[in-house]
Design a protein around this nucleic acid. Sequence first.
DNA 1: TATGCGATATTCT
DNA 2: GAATATCGCATAG
Length: 196
Amino acid sequence: MRRLKRADLSVDTAALARFLIGKTLVRDAAEGRTSGRIVEAEAYVAGDASGHAYIGQVDRNRSLFLRRGPAYVYFIYGTHFCVNVSGERPGIGAGVLLRALEPIEGLAIMRARRRTHRLTDLARGPGRLAEAKKIDRGLDGIDLCSRGPLWLAGEVRSPLPVATSVRIGISKETTRLLRFYEAGNPHVSGPLALRK
DNA sequence: TATGCGATATTCT
DNA sequence: GAATATCGCATAG
């Protein structure tokens, strides 16, 4: 599987979110390798009031202000972790939230971590994705374009058409079309109207 | 399928 | 004290 180089990543955050649909997220952990095809992602662009970078750079969100490529991992609702790919140039706070994967490799490992057998429950939704991939704050800041425990790879097959919609779960900037997903893929999260 | 609700911790006001 | 880039379970249709 071809590892993505930083130069492959789109420079613009919205373009990056679209680019990542169909690419592969690989996790190498003690239990073995798990990988999944990215089928849903949301862009949180520079100056976006719904983005975690909007308040300015603080300790928690510093990864969003790095060059494009590192992971930003945060903890939410007292129970879940979510993963972003940082975008833009150093000093600019922006990123792409990875919302759903189609499981490819290491199904048994992900089923054990998620304590469920159902394929579409393994990584459909950002919290589930992080649990299936065993991602927590320990992976915050690691470069997804380098050898390491979490990295990006090319396509395992060509993607179907990419659709666009409003983002899920936010209360500001709710009308911007910055969510991208593979139309009709059963591993995409959200209500039916936002999956077709 | 849709809606409603509780759980839970960190951050912000 | 309130809000949160969520999830799983319950219930209704």
